[in-house]
Design a protein around this nucleic acid. Sequence first.
DNA 1: AGGGATCCATGATTGGATCCCA
DNA 2: TGGGATCCAATCATGGATCCCT
Lengths: 223, 223
Amino acid sequence: MINSPKSEADLLERCRGIAGRTLAELASRVGWRVPTEPRRAKGFTGQLLEECLGATAGSKSVPDFERLGVEMKSIPVSATGSPLESTYVSTTTLVDHLGLTWDVSRVRKKLARVLWVPVQSRPIPLPQRRVGSALLWSPSADEEAVLRNDWEEHMERIRLGMVETITGRDGDVLQIRPKAADSKAQTWGIDENGHRFRTLPRGFYLRPTFTSKILRQNFRLPG
Amino acid sequence: MINSPKSEADLLERCRGIAGRTLAELASRVGWRVPTEPRRAKGFTGQLLEECLGATAGSKSVPDFERLGVEMKSIPVSATGSPLESTYVSTTTLVDHLGLTWDVSRVRKKLARVLWVPVQSRPIPLPQRRVGSALLWSPSADEEAVLRNDWEEHMERIRLGMVETITGRDGDVLQIRPKAADSKAQTWGIDENGHRFRTLPRGFYLRPTFTSKILRQNFRLPG
DNA sequence: AGGGATCCATGATTGGATCCCA
DNA sequence: TGGGATCCAATCATGGATCCCT
């Protein structure tokens, strides 16, 4: 385990140290093996980057770089730098939303300060994928406004007991989608009559169009 | 043949007279039959609307409403009002571009004043498609800037003899695509050495993202 | 050929399902 | 269960091909 970065400048310096490297090279540095089956490799890239950069959180509900208040997000990109997948933000609270506002929400906290690390993805085989240039980002006023609007609309529907009516098509930039081992997983929700019932766990995700804008506005990529 | 409108107000009044009507109803008014095979019906809607509104141009290179300087464009929309197809603007000049600038271009002239008439499209059968609310539009400064930029980039490539390298992917809002009976049709172009050669006729088209913005900014539709 | 456009196969997108680790 | 995410079948978007009329 590598020690954690002392400052944002330290963190960015470490990012420059992994930029351009393949995942095989990075795994070798920390003595990890690279999974061979793609389906079994979900999450591997993010966890490898955390290890390489000295992230602290593990599966705790605190920022990856706790001292710095920085969340790290690896982001799979195409050959031209476009995000290929949505970005998971956090699980969605389906019960106990009393007093839960945007200002104190986990989504806002997680996105307050993010280290975006682009990594090549399909069709390049996992070991040969290269890490790109990292970006430290906080949402602009406009970006936070649209995030907040989506979050509030989603949470309003959940408060009304309508969580089951929410699909991945809802939300301009912030989606709610299943976040579970499979479609039979169950957690507790609140129905229209205020009664507890079993439902599929959900998570908040950022659409690729949103993360694409973040990357492009900061790197001036083509397209 | 109906007489031509005397003013923009007259034209818009006639549009209100066809809004909400089906193509079967309008065809009946002017004594036309409605084609049954969709592949054989390309252009039918536009020509029917011209007839109903008293357009004058036929296949001449002048505005549909010549006296008013107004071009009519029917635009096929989905159930939610989104354009389903790109919009043809004009054929592309592949030879004799001396002195051809944006200011005197056919694209600029055609788009200077446009009557957009949304009409329902797939999956509704042709006779049952309904005409929507028409919109008289001129490009904003921003819209003209992006149109001009696309047009100039396309024409520069054509001047360099590179017309064959242009694909439908080029241009932010204004595309160049084939405009011909089939892929074997031929017209004259100029190659990299300034020599005439046979090539596929092309046309300028507006992307659905562009026309969608026009419709939405004026009707405040959902989505 | 120019004006009126849409067709539709195929590539791009994506939302529901799924997978690993602690 | 929460954090790290990607997989991939089904849907959407679109660009090259095509069709009618004068």
